[in-house]
Design a protein around this nucleic acid. Structure first.
Lengths: 323, 323
DNA sequence: TTGAAAGCGCTAACAA
DNA sequence: TTGTTAGCGCTTTCAA
């Protein structure tokens, strides 16, 4: 019977027979306590994320992972962490380490698209559950994803920028990118943003312009850029750079929408230099990712392969309720 | 040693000795699988909620409870359900049933304040963990609470009503109550609502008026009530009644803010007759409530006694992402 | 007050 | 291909 349950071979048709008859009909449920006690297995999860020093955003998923790690330690789950600096070569270096190791599950954030595809194709050969967070690579099959719908979040940003405005209004989209940026999350967001205005044809009172610079060159912002501008959309977490500029130049009455509850972003939200933040719940993504692996491997549960994180709207008045 | 761990008596000072020395110093952690296998206990949770037939809101927490029930069944947790009709006498009848039963934990929504206090005082004698959802009774000690901060949610509603509006504006607060209503959640919300305007003194362009009627008398709404009204705040889930009226009387350009993702509310949100809904995540409250009891009783974990549910802002464009 | 041992339901290894 | 059994780490009971 044990052989049937685990289909460890050597049963002909009785297999299907007993599985269907006894198990399903009698409603058998494996006793998890006994099973795991006897199984006595330690599970090793590889956690493969960008390093968080100097990158506040990435501290959050890690926090969620650590919380899960603590919670699941008693269930025989151990994490091994692999961090990479925000560069393609550092990524590759760590990727090969992850490939060498012997793990039961992988939590992974595919920041560099091309490199991630190569890595994932290789890792998939091991036939080990993989959960991705933050951004998805839907082209590769058999991967689980926990994160936001980037397009829809941009669409929502369009609503937040336009809400309640009847008069002529010019929107500035500021793309503040990293030196290396390879996943196109922010492009999908901008895409969704424009789609909102296309879908709401009555909003003819909006004009758009875009500017683009690297995070390291934030001093490139000039007052001239904001002349005649009524609102600003920053399609990533670097919105605090704009808020900082607005504050130091005493530019008021510009509606600002951005992403993520970074400390600086929250400060400017409270001071009124940012109006809306869209929360990706990075901490929850980390926690859910580990939880997902736990359910799949330890509890042997069937589980949805994609979990979209809700698009949370954060204003000053509800920011605290999100901790 | 077993006697020490469970302090089942009959150890003098060795108790404190061994607990401190061996357990803490050697970092002993009870093996949950072995422990629960040997313990072989079934846990019985009483779920004591308003009946959900004809009360869409209360179907949601129950859904969360049922989901948790399914998940934790394998861990020896069994629910027993007690529903009461929305009347004080029905509540009392069920309450005495709950008191009679022999449970290991209780999930409870204290809809009727006075009756709930009496019930809780009695139930507390059993020394069994109690989790409340939806509304809290902080006066009674030793109870755990999972739900929203009603005051702050009203405060947030104030922001949503006022956001982006510079011109003179009249706000109508419509209190649609049940025949019997005893928890003051909606009053706390209105309280918070006014506080928002008090805290933002520059918002001198807002006037307020209130009307009040019973849910069963929704035909009392008249067009006259909405003359000169720019926005409406409904401090509970019955906002769809207002939306319905607005739609059938073709009243547009009135900003409407209400609570909860009822099907009808979502429909009117999508049609544009409701602008903002504040989500209380009732399903999550139910799930978390059971999860809370599970952690406390089965895993014997220490756990926070209050869990505030975030104040989620729902608009048409992000409603779907909340399922 | 302490020690010893059965047994919880399962897995994995070995014997038949 | 099938049956048997030790033992996972704990709780609980019974004996000392």
């Amino acid at each position: 019977m044990d052989r049937i349950l685990h289909s460890r071979g050597q049963v002909t048709q009785e297999n299907i027979d007993k599985v269907n008859t006894i198990i399903k009909e009698y409603g058998y449920q494996r006793n998890i306590y006994a099973s795991n006690l006897a199984f006595n297995k330690k599970f090793r999860f590889a956690v493969f994320l960008p390093q968080h020093e100097g990158l506040e955003y990435w501290a959050a998923p890690l926090l969620g992972v650590k919380k899960a790690a603590e919670e699941f330690e008693r269930f025989g789950v151990k994490m091994e962490y692999f961090y990479y600096k925000y560069s393609s070569s550092a990524f590759k270096r760590q990727a090969s380490k992850v490939l060498e190791g012997d793990f039961d599950g992988l939590l992974f954030a595919p920041i560099f698209y091309e490199e991630s595809v190569i890595f994932l194709k290789e890792f998939k050969k091991k036939n080990i559950p993989i959960v991705m967070i933050d951004s998805n690579i839907p082209e590769i099959e058999g991967l689980d994803y926990i994160g936001q719908d980037a397009y829809q979040s941009g669409y929502l940003a369009g609503k937040l920028i336009s809400f309640g405005i009847k008069t002529k209004s010019t929107v500035l989209i500021i793309k503040i990118t990293r030196e290396i940026e390879s996943t196109s999350v922010y492009l999908q967001r901008i895409n969704g943003f424009y789609s909102f205005f296309k879908d709401n044809k009555e909003l003819t009172n909006f004009n758009f312009s875009e500017i683009n610079f690297k995070a390291s060159e934030s001093n490139l912002l000039t007052e001239k850029m904001f002349e005649g501008i009524n609102s600003v959309f920053v399609p990533n977490s670097r919105v605090f750079i704009v808020a900082e500029f607005l504050k130091s130049n005493n530019l008021k009455d510009i509606r600002v929408v951005g992403y993520d509850l970074l400390k600086q972003n929250l400060d400017y939200l409270n001071e009124g230099y940012i109006d809306f933040l869209i929360n990706q719940k990075p901490e929850e993504q980390g926690y859910s990712g580990i939880n997902h692996l736990y359910k799949k491997l330890v509890l042997k549960e069937e589980i949805e392969e994609t979990k979209y994180i809700p698009l949370e709207i954060i204003v000053k008045e509800n920011a605290l309720s999100f901790k």
